[in-house]
Deep mutational scan, measured.
Amino acid sequence: FDIYVVTADYLPLGAEQDAITLREGQYVEVLDAAHPLRWLVRTKPTKSSPSRQGWVSPAYLDRRL
């Protein structure tokens, strides 16, 4: 999967189903980028939180090589 970094805090609107909150600087794996406005991502697990999966706007993501 492609690795992206979150460029700004992402707080989903209440109406968005299956969306997750992301923090600036967080790394995520993009699982599904087929839709231009919503990408399915999975967060990297940390010592304090397990990995999470949900939909985010790709405008908040920047690809890492």
Rank of each mutant, 00 (worst) to 15 (best):
F1Q: 08
F1C: 15
F1L: 10
D2N: 10
I3N: 04
I3G: 04
I3H: 05
I3V: 12
V5S: 03
V5N: 02
V6C: 12
V6F: 01
T7W: 05
A8D: 05
A8E: 09
D9V: 03
D9M: 05
D9Y: 04
D9L: 04
D9T: 05
D9Q: 05
D9C: 06
D9A: 06
D9G: 06
Y10S: 04
Y10E: 03
Y10W: 10
L11K: 11
L11W: 13
P12V: 08
P12L: 08
L13M: 12
L13R: 11
L13D: 15
L13T: 14
L13K: 11
G14M: 11
G14E: 15
G14H: 12
A15V: 12
E16N: 08
E16Y: 08
E16D: 13
Q17K: 14
D18Q: 07
D18Y: 07
D18W: 08
D18K: 05
A19E: 11
A19L: 07
A19S: 12
A19G: 14
I20K: 02
I20T: 03
T21H: 12
T21S: 14
T21F: 13
T21A: 13
L22R: 00
L22C: 02
L22M: 04
R23T: 11
R23P: 03
E24C: 14
E24P: 10
E24N: 07
G25W: 02
Q26Y: 03
Q26A: 06
Q26P: 00
Y27E: 14
Y27L: 15
V28Y: 01
V28L: 03
V28H: 01
V28R: 00
E29A: 05
E29I: 13
V30S: 01
V30W: 01
V30I: 09
V30C: 03
L31N: 00
L31M: 07
L31R: 02
L31C: 03
D32Y: 08
D32G: 02
A33D: 12
A33W: 09
A33G: 09
A33S: 14
A34W: 07
A34V: 09
A34K: 14
A34S: 15
A34L: 09
H35Q: 08
H35R: 05
P36L: 06
P36W: 04
P36R: 06
L37A: 10
L37Y: 10
R38G: 03
R38A: 06
W39M: 01
W39A: 00
L40V: 02
V41Q: 00
V41I: 07
V41W: 01
V41C: 02
R42S: 04
R42C: 05
R42V: 04
R42D: 01
R42M: 05
R42H: 02
R42A: 06
T43R: 01
T43V: 08
T43G: 01
T43M: 04
K44R: 14
K44C: 15
K44E: 10
K44N: 07
K44A: 13
K44P: 10
K44F: 15
K44V: 15
P45C: 10
P45G: 13
P45Y: 05
P45T: 08
P45Q: 09
P45W: 06
T46G: 07
T46L: 06
T46W: 06
T46Q: 07
T46A: 06
T46K: 05
K47S: 13
S48I: 10
S48H: 14
S48L: 11
S48Y: 12
S49I: 10
S49V: 11
S49P: 02
P50V: 08
P50H: 06
P50M: 06
P50S: 07
S51L: 06
S51N: 03
S51K: 04
S51T: 09
R52N: 08
R52E: 13
R52D: 07
R52G: 06
R52W: 12
R52I: 15
R52A: 12
Q53T: 15
Q53L: 11
Q53R: 06
G54H: 05
W55A: 02
W55V: 03
V56L: 04
V56H: 01
S57D: 15
S57Y: 04
S57F: 04
S57G: 03
P58G: 02
P58V: 05
P58I: 04
P58E: 02
A59Y: 07
A59F: 08
A59W: 06
A59T: 11
Y60Q: 03
Y60N: 07
Y60M: 04
Y60H: 08
Y60L: 06
L61G: 00
L61D: 01
D62Q: 14
D62A: 15
R64C: 15
R64G: 11
R64S: 13
R64I: 15
R64N: 11
L65V: 14
L65F: 13
L65E: 14
L65S: 13
L65C: 14
